[in-house]
């Protein structure tokens, strides 16, 4: 089991191998369909990024509302392929680590290899268990998107598996 803390250095990123099990700690950011669209619209209109992506981790999740006394509700990954058209724009701008579930497009894999990015998966459908690794959650952008707003999560030993490493190796069986 590999332990990593964000922001993740280039050498740590490049040392990951497809199939590795990783426990992630530190700050990660949530974004899914609607937030990605907003980020990309911003990029296109302002010609600059609304966020600094270097070394950061984006997690594709829309959590359930937190019950009183809990930092977050259930928070497992959503399918990543829907973010492919956005990710291929963001990887060249510095976003190098993404967490989601399921396989992604050939175009995504090409850009991933070119930019030496890494795609991790969390196990889908285990949102109650994954919530135990989240210490803190706050909405930092697009609150109008509700569960799809960008949340800043503080995680401790959040379990992931390396799906595509920076060299394009693929863990999935098809």
């Amino acid at each position: 089991m590999i332990k990593l803390t964000t922001p993740i250095s280039k050498s740590d990123r490049l040392s990951l191998k497809s199939g590795d099990e990783v426990l992630l700690s530190g700050i990660i950011y949530t974004a899914r369909d609607a937030a990605h669209k907003k980020i990309l619209d911003y990029l296109k209109s302002k010609q600059e990024s609304p966020f600094e992506f270097d070394g950061q981790v984006v997690y594709y999740v829309g959590p359930t509302p937190a019950k009183p006394g809990y930092p977050i509700g259930s928070c497992g990954p959503t399918s990543s392929y829907r973010m492919d058209p956005f990710s291929v724009e963001l990887m060249p701008r510095g976003l190098k680590i993404m967490i989601g579930k399921g396989d992604r497009s050939e175009n995504f894999k090409d850009i991933l290899k070119q930019t030496q990015s890494v795609y991790l998966v969390a196990i889908g459908g285990i949102g109650a268990l994954l919530a135990k690794s989240v210490l803190k959650s706050e909405v930092i952008a697009y609150p109008e998107l509700q569960s799809e707003a960008i949340h800043r999560l503080e995680v401790k030993d959040f379990p992931c598996i390396v799906a595509y490493d920076a060299y394009g190796n693929d863990v999935f069986h098809k």
Partner: peptide, 26 residues
Amino acid sequence: LPINVLENIISNQDIARNEHLPICQD
């Protein structure tokens, strides 16, 4: 890996039941 996944899925539904949390965020 498949053992890891299934163990976590089984453990998740226990956590959900005991803590009264949704099994999945969707």
